[in-house]
Design a protein around this nucleic acid. Structure first.
Lengths: 412, 412
DNA sequence: CCTCATTTTGTGGATTTCCACAAAATTAAT
DNA sequence: ATTAATTTTGTGGAAATCCACAAAATGAGG
């Protein structure tokens, strides 16, 4: 089979036309994606496509499990590091048939991919060369999309910041803007923050953006960057367990950043989950509060990401203020502290850990490295010395809060 | 034995002299008390006195257990209702030997008592008559004491109000006043309030004052009346378990008011227990807070009298304010409430009662009149529907507080 | 160093909790 | 009225908690 020198020198009106042209030449279905695996174009009239391609076209993006599996097999890393086409063997778990892929480059950066599904025939060496040429030819078309998107991005960013800082409060106005910028609406949303150890570089931003675009756990409505913080407005897919979904997303995001880009130590949080847009600022502030509290209680809050789950820590700032004014003097706590001080005991810590572990004897004993009976003896002493009834949940909760508050205050 | 018509017509310099005179005439030890069983005078040179009299003289007041027992035997009620002498048989439990008592009257009011201990001899009918005359003769002397005390009282009252309202804040100044008015000092003190169903009449005030003067559970430093409220500054006897002592006092005060004067439905409270006088106003405010909270949570706080033991309710006003501003939206609670509403279930109440009962399965089941397994089933549902981890004490406490807060808000 | 009070660890048994499973009762919806 | 889902109650056994008692370890003070 022979082709003319550059079969793509003709001008194409659209990328669809371009995809059809490649498909004609190679005799196999073609899909073109951007750097974030969103579908840009695909060839029509194909007889056979595998489930992965079908799903990609339907949802206009590559299914996340497919992306995950391509990362694990090393396909995407290969495409990101070289301009050469890569062949992918069938991965039946995710419905992926044999295919060949090549990356589209602009300077030193990958801005998209072309996939050729080996439906009826296997591509030859020449075919591969052709694909490579196609990738080069696609560059400008893809770039145009990219630039157009960037311009839109800027306007959207500005809008997002206005929302975060409460500069737009009228619900009508917010809705208008959402519609104008073609941001999808959602019944529930929350503001998420990923806080990095250092300022977020363009490079990192792209990596994050990549993961966000490819994830399908949540809907990303808006995002922006503020020094260490990557801030996004996200919507859970279902309204049934929004908390759980956002939590899962945050965890998997952390894992992916670590696995794929070796970015460690990201602190994540999200604020309240709300229905109306006026609450975006509130949700953002709450997400910031979560990070602040996590800073101060790293152990207790290590598995907490949401404002919801902050629980009693939600009102610690408020209580601390009052405490500073001399309120809430807890004589039980004072007595226990005095006793600990004088006799080098650990009554306060014992109570705190016991409560932390939901009053579970075994767990607490293990956590404190003491015998269960030692714990029970200490609890008896705590009741005596602190003049506190250990069956009175009210007194216990107050003591617990006061202990935490004292710690919080110490860290001011 | 015969006496001249009025053996007491001579003028006596002091009540001590007067007591000696009676003692001479009746040939037995004499003690004179005011209406509150404080020792006013006693005859000297007596050979025999019983333990009760000794204790009275030493502590300058009749021991409380003796007063209690005299009430129970009906002696004091008899003395309060008639001018006739009353004979008291030995009450060995409290070290009281045989004796005769008579009350001292001014108009329709008892202002004191004279006690004649039948040490060597039993008083005859004539002796009793003599005692009655002595009581009449004592009237003016006792009254003088009474009046002098009243004048002092007024100044003291004014001072107390200044303390309660924070109009004297300098510790030095407070100390000076305490010394000047001969109010005993104490290392620890608290402000107590007894709130009556209606305004406190002079009559009730006297009854209260009587109980306060005769109690020896605590030291009463100052007291005053404000409409429904009887307010006092009290000091616990020991510094070890001040909370417990004040609690005990409040309970026994209520019992006595009920038993002796049939005064029901007193609401009592006390504020923080402090060391420095500047905190009197604070303690007073706290005592008022306790009463306010008891008003709103009668069941939960029925056994609570102190600000200390208010526990989490201490900061409910604070939290309520924030809640009104839209903070602390607890989606778990919202979901549970919605579920309850829709399916006519009791998940919120179940959780609340369970927590109220210190997470004790049996007690809770009993309180709710359900099977223990029903409770466990409901808890499982609560965890599911509320998206809450029942082993996470933080989430649980938050939910609990939010439930109580919602109730509190409902009662605004 | 010794002594005494306090704290820790150990043992065993009564009691309670937890959990899985199943049957009965109740409720909502067609 | 029938069905299906949810809720309540019951049973039994494993696991955990509680409690009393005792022996060992620790530590402060004379």
């Amino acid at each position: 089979m022979t082709y003319q020198d550059d079969p793509f020198k003709a001008n194409f009106d659209s990328l669809e036309e371009f995809a059809d042209r490649i498909s004609d030449l190679l005799q196999c279905p073609i899909t073109i994606e951007d750097a974030n695996h969103r579908l840009i174009a695909y060839s029509a009239h194909d007889d056979y496509t595998d489930p992965a391609r079908t799903a990609t076209i339907i949802s206009r993006r590559v299914p996340e499990k497919v992306i995950n599996s391509l990362w694990k097999k090393g396909v995407i890393p290969a495409l990101l590091s070289s301009m050469e086409p890569v062949r992918v063997e069938t991965i039946s778990e995710v419905g992926l048939g044999n295919r060949v892929a090549v990356s589209i480059w602009k300077n030193n950066e990958v801005i998209g991919f072309i996939w050729a599904l080996e439906a009826d025939r296997t591509l030859s060496k020449d075919d591969m060369e052709l694909l490579k040429k196609a990738a080069k030819a696609a560059k400008n078309k893809v770039l145009q999309l990219y630039m157009r998107k960037n311009k839109r991005e800027e306007r959207v960013q500005e809008f997002f910041w206005k929302l975060l800082t409460g500069h737009i409060t009228a619900n009508e106005e917010i809705k208008e803007n959402f519609a104008m910028m073609q941001i999808p609406t959602a019944p529930l949303f929350s503001v998420l923050i990923f806080r990095f150890a250092s300022d977020i570089t363009n490079d990192i931003e792209k990596q994050i953006s990549y993961i966000l675009q490819t994830t399908q756990q949540i809907h990303v409505l808006l995002y922006t960057v503020d020094r260490h913080d990557f801030i996004l407005l996200a919507a859970p897919k279902s309204t049934l367990q929004p908390l759980h979904e956002l939590n899962q997303f945050i965890i998997s995001f952390g894992t992916k950043m670590k696995e794929r880009f070796h970015v460690n130590s990201i602190k994540s949080s999200f604020g309240g989950i709300y229905e109306t847009y006026e609450h975006i600022e509130k949700s953002y502030k709450e997400a910031l509060t979560v990070l602040a509290i996590k800073e101060k209680f790293p152990e207790q809050t290590s598995t907490i990401y949401s404002y919801q789950q902050l629980g009693i820590y939600q009102f610690f700032d408020l209580l601390l203020e009052k405490k500073r004014q001399g309120e809430f003097i807890n004589s039980s706590l004072l007595k226990l502290q005095a006793y600990d001080e004088k006799h080098h005991t650990n009554l306060v810590e014992t109570f705190e850990v016991f409560f932390d572990h939901d009053s579970n004897v075994n767990e607490t004993a293990k956590a404190l490295n003491i015998h269960a009976n030692t714990l029970s003896y200490r609890l008896k002493r705590i009741a005596e010395i602190g003049e506190i009834n250990l069956h009175d949940i009210n007194q216990k909760v107050k003591l617990y809060i006061d202990i935490k508050l004292a710690k919080y205050e110490a860290l001011h």
